[in-house]
Write a protein that binds this DNA or RNA. Sequence first.
DNA 1: TGTATGAATATTGTTAACAATCATCAAGGC
DNA 2: GCCTTGATGATTGTTAACAATATTCATACA
Lengths: 204, 204
Amino acid sequence: MSGSRAPKILSVKDQIAEQMRSDIISGDLAPNTKLNEKELAERFGLSRGPIRDVILQLTKEGLLVSKNNVGASVNSVLDPSLQKLMISLRRNIEVFAIEQLKEKLTEKDFAALEKILFDLQSAFEREDFTEVTKIDISFHNYLVHKAGGDDLVNIWYPFVMRMRLNYKRITSGVECVNEHETILNALRAGDTAKAVKGLKANIR
Amino acid sequence: MSGSRAPKILSVKDQIAEQMRSDIISGDLAPNTKLNEKELAERFGLSRGPIRDVILQLTKEGLLVSKNNVGASVNSVLDPSLQKLMISLRRNIEVFAIEQLKEKLTEKDFAALEKILFDLQSAFEREDFTEVTKIDISFHNYLVHKAGGDDLVNIWYPFVMRMRLNYKRITSGVECVNEHETILNALRAGDTAKAVKGLKANIR
DNA sequence: TGTATGAATATTGTTAACAATCATCAAGGC
DNA sequence: GCCTTGATGATTGTTAACAATATTCATACA
């Protein structure tokens, strides 16, 4: 096997899902916007079948709301108490991940995380904020996946989506990169408590 | 509007999903069992389309695992640390629900919960344990839904499913009914702390 | 004998036509 | 004037055929 990172083949549906998530989180698709399957199918150049799959998936993630025989629309923001709960639950999951990962991260992992932060910085410099969001998530995703595999990621992902949908924290480029660097350095040093603290500062 | 409870119309897909959940949780479908879309379609008397939707849904709930171009199979049990995390997260959600519901439950709610417990008892007496599981879940579902609506239920449901898949706590009929009665009585008395305590005793 | 190759088969992914349901709106009755 | 009723059009739900991919198994070769 070559040393390069796997090119990560995404199925067509995953790519559509990714695009629609971006559109929703960026605000291109406002809350309560009704989605039309035929329109979407034409836009993405495929038939309604796969589109329906994607809609079902995003509904499960909490980004859309579906009603029988009526269709799907973009979900609206949660009320503050639910929002707080979501943040708390997401924190619990990621704290769990960090605790599990103590002593288990290899040099390869650190290199991968380092690379993610580099890409994050670079996306900030390009002012490509959609990409910033994706890379930010991928940092956390790396840890969660390493700790709990696909199972944990599946549980965790909806929280991330809901947080992004509900509340976009304004961060400067340096602040965001620094927050993640703090976490990474603490992990490297094996200082779980510090990593957890950094994580809690980052997830809010 | 009449006073009777809504008959709760379920779509065909919801009914199939319900059946398949039962089969998985009851153990009729063992972990790692490969699912065949055509077979399932024939068994339920419909085409592969809706079956695929159900598979996607159960995959998101964590009951199945899907691979591109290969298919879905029944998920295996989680390792104990993840299992503990799931229990903890589910507890957090339901504790949140109870705290939200303080002073907000009407007499109608209490009557509905009372009826659920009656049905629970009755299912135990019939020794219909599949039904027991469903009714048990519906008690918790009522509270979670009342506190956070569909959004919260969508987040909560996967935890319940995973717990059922991983670990079937052996309970006697009286014990189970009593545990829920304790919670209900505490709610009625407005004693949140006691309700939370009862809940934590029940979710484990 | 074990392994690699490739055709045959089975299974999933996609599509377009068809059926069922819902939303709209005009006509008629109170 | 307002509400109910029923036809119309738009949209979602379902189906069966087709395409693409993965698996299986027999065959040939080292």
